[in-house]
C-alpha cells in the first residue's frame, strides 16, 4: 500500500508501460488523496451499514419483531436483484451530486447482504442451543450475546464481506457523480483517452478490493461458529 501511494514509483512504472503519453499521473489529485477518498467512502458507508444492518437483522428475529421477518427477507432478496449502479443513479435525484448520494446508495445497497446474512445466521442457531441456554437461567439478552451472536458470527461476517466488496466496486462508479475516489482517474482516462490514467485507478482499486476481502476473510477464520453456506 505504501509502495502504491508513491507518485515517483508510479511515474516510473507507467512511463515504462506508456512511453508515448506525455502526462502519466492524473493531475487533479495525488494518488494518495484518491485512495484516502475511496477508503473514506467505504469506511463511512460500511460502518453505517453494519450499525443499521446487524441490529435490524436481530430485531426481526426477536419475538416482537417476528411479524417483520417475512417482508424484510423478501425486500432484501428483491433488492439484491437491483443492479448497484441503478441504486447509485436513483440516489442522485434524491440528494443531488457528490459524496452524499454515493454514501446513501452504498449504505442502502450494502445493507442487503448484511441484513440477509444476519437473519440467516440467527435462524441457523439450533433450537437446542437456545433451550440449553434458557435452562442455564440466561436472560434473553444474555442468550443473544453469548449464544446466538457467537454462533451466527461467521455467517454475519460473510455478509459484511460481500457488502464491503460490492461497495468498493460501486464507489468506483461514484466518481461519475462527483464522489472522487479511485474511479476518477479511470473516468478521466476514458474521456481523454489516456491509458496511464486508467491503469492508475484500476490497479490500486483492484488491490484495495482484494486486500479488504482478505482482511475480512482473515477475521472470519478467527471466529468460531457455523460456516457460511451461501
Amino acid at each position: 500500500m505504501i509502495l502504491i501511494s508513491q507518485d515517483a514509483w508510479w511515474i516510473w512504472f507507467l512511463g515504462s508501460l506508456f512511453p508515448a503519453e506525455s502526462q502519466l499521473l492524473h493531475p487533479r489529485a495525488s494518488l494518495q488523496t484518491l485512495v484516502l477518498q475511496h477508503v473514506a467512502l467505504i469506511g463511512i458507508s460500511s460502518s453505517l451499514t453494519i450499525a443499521i444492518g446487524v441490529p435490524l437483522g436481530i430485531l426481526v428475529t426477536r419475538t416482537y419483531g417476528r411479524p417483520f421477518l417475512g417482508i424484510t427477507s423478501d425486500l432484501t432478496a428483491l433488492g439484491q436483484t437491483f443492479p448497484p449502479v441503478a441504486v447509485l443513479a436513483l440516489a442522485v435525484p434524491l440528494t443531488g451530486f457528490g459524496f452524499r448520494p454515493t454514501i446513501l446508495a452504498l449504505v442502502l445497497y450494502g445493507l442487503l447482504p448484511v441484513v440477509r446474512n444476519t437473519i440467516a445466521g440467527l435462524t441457523s442457531v439450533p433450537g437446542e442451543a437456545r433451550d440449553a441456554a434458557r435452562g442455564l437461567g440466561m436472560t434473553g439478552a444474555q442468550i443473544l450475546l453469548r449464544v446466538e451472536l457467537p454462533l451466527a458470527a461467521r455467517i454475519i461476517l460473510a455478509g459484511i464481506r460481500t457488502s464491503v466488496v460490492i461497495n468498493v466496486g460501486t464507489a468506483m462508479v461514484g466518481a461519475v457523480i462527483g464522489a472522487g475516489g479511485l474511479g476518477s482517474p479511470i473516468i478521466a482516462g476514458l474521456i481523454q483517452n489516456n491509458l496511464a490514467f486508467i491503469i492508475q485507478g484500476a490497479l490500486p482499486a483492484a488491490f484495495l478490493a482484494l486486500l479488504l476481502d482478505q482482511a475480512i476473510a482473515g477475521v472470519e477464520t478467527l471466529v468460531p461458529g457455523n460456516r457460511a453456506t451461501a
Binding site: V165, L195, L203
Partner: peptide
C-alpha cells in the same frame, strides 16, 4: 474469486490497456 473481487470499472480498465 480473485476476478470476482476486483471492481467492475477496474477490471474494464485493466482489460482496455492490453486490448488497445
Amino acid at each position: 474469486s480473485t476476478i470476482e473481487t476486483v471492481p467492475s470499472l477496474a477490471l474494464f480498465g485493466l482489460i482496455i490497456a492490453p486490448l488497445a
